[in-house]
């Protein structure tokens, strides 16, 4: 088991595996996206209060979820990189940061677009909007720190520390901001009241499909970016140079089987 994990975590093997997985994940995400959008924009009934403008939740809610998931994912892979010094985890953490920031930005923009007809303004200093904005800033801090340190491995470790500090702080920030001001409508779906979510089932199903599609999209992009990140970080290693020289990855893999694979004990 440990040997298998070790083998998977070697940049070369991950690069190949990720390359194989990407089209499948991306394809599944596209199909689910099409189904979810059709369900959300066409099949789901109108909201009795908000009319058609509620339909933006099919983008807004999944992006908000993923912006939070992305931060936790980044912190966990950063911590793994920090503790066990796994290069792959460092590369993943570095490649998740801009993706999570984009989802936070998307959540802010769609929320603002929805707020204009509903609340009458583009922006309100409401608790959840503000904490998403702060989350966005935290992402930007991690990205900036990553870019500022030249040595890639040091940069990864420094931003991992920052991400972990951020994770400790996020609950405090969220509760302090919530306590400071609350206007946003309450969470529509929560695990605590799963029996009776305050959303109609016809609206809920497309939302869950969209959430799954976004999640798969997230992983697709993470895999793609991590592959690029790995090539950049490992540019001096043999497997990357062989890849660039035009040999197919499969043959180089076979040729390197004995020299590169970690010792199994």
């Amino acid at each position: 088991m440990w040997a298998f994990a070790n083998k998977l975590a070697s940049p070369r093997n991950f690069y190949r595996l990720a390359g194989k997985l990407t089209p499948w994940l991306g394809g599944a995400s596209l199909i689910l996206l099409a189904v979810g959008l059709y369900g959300g924009l066409v099949l789901a009934p109108q909201d009795y209060q908000q009319g058609d403008s509620f339909r933006i939740i099919y983008i807004h809610v999944p992006s908000a979820w993923l912006s939070m998931f992305g931060y936790a994912f980044m912190a966990v892979s950063g911590a793994i990189g920090l503790i066990w010094r796994i290069k792959l985890a460092e590369a993943i953490a570095a490649s998740v940061a801009p993706i999570g920031a984009s989802f936070a930005f998307l959540a802010l923009v769609t929320g603002s677009l929805w707020g204009k007809p509903m609340w009458g303004t583009w922006w309100v200093w409401d608790a959840r909007l503000t904490s998403t904005l702060i989350l966005f800033f935290l992402y930007l801090g991690v990205i900036a720190l990553n870019a500022a340190i030249e040595d890639k491995r040091n940069a990864a470790r420094a931003s991992a520390v920052l991400a972990i500090v951020g994770v400790v702080n996020i609950p405090i920030i969220v509760y302090s901001v919530e306590w400071w001001n609350t206007l946003h409508q309450k969470a529509t779906i929560s695990i605590m009241k799963m029996q009776a979510p305050s959303i109609h089932i016809d609206m809920l199903i497309p939302l869950l499909i969209m959430a799954l599609a976004f999640q798969l999209f997230f992983f697709t992009v993470v895999l793609m970016r991590t592959r690029g990140e790995l090539l950049d970080r490992e540019r001096n290693s043999r497997w990357v140079q062989e890849l660039v020289d035009g040999k197919t990855p499969a043959t180089t893999a076979k040729a390197n089987e004995f020299s590169v694979s970690p010792p199994t004990s």
Partner: peptide
């Protein structure tokens, strides 16, 4: 985190100010 960087000042504010928010509130 930024002590080794030549121009850490601006970066420091970007890293630290979001974490100061609960105290301010």
């Amino acid at each position: 985190l930024t002590v080794g960087l030549r121009r850490g000042g601006m970066l420091l504010s970007l890293l630290v100010l979001p974490l100061y928010i609960p105290v301010l509130i």
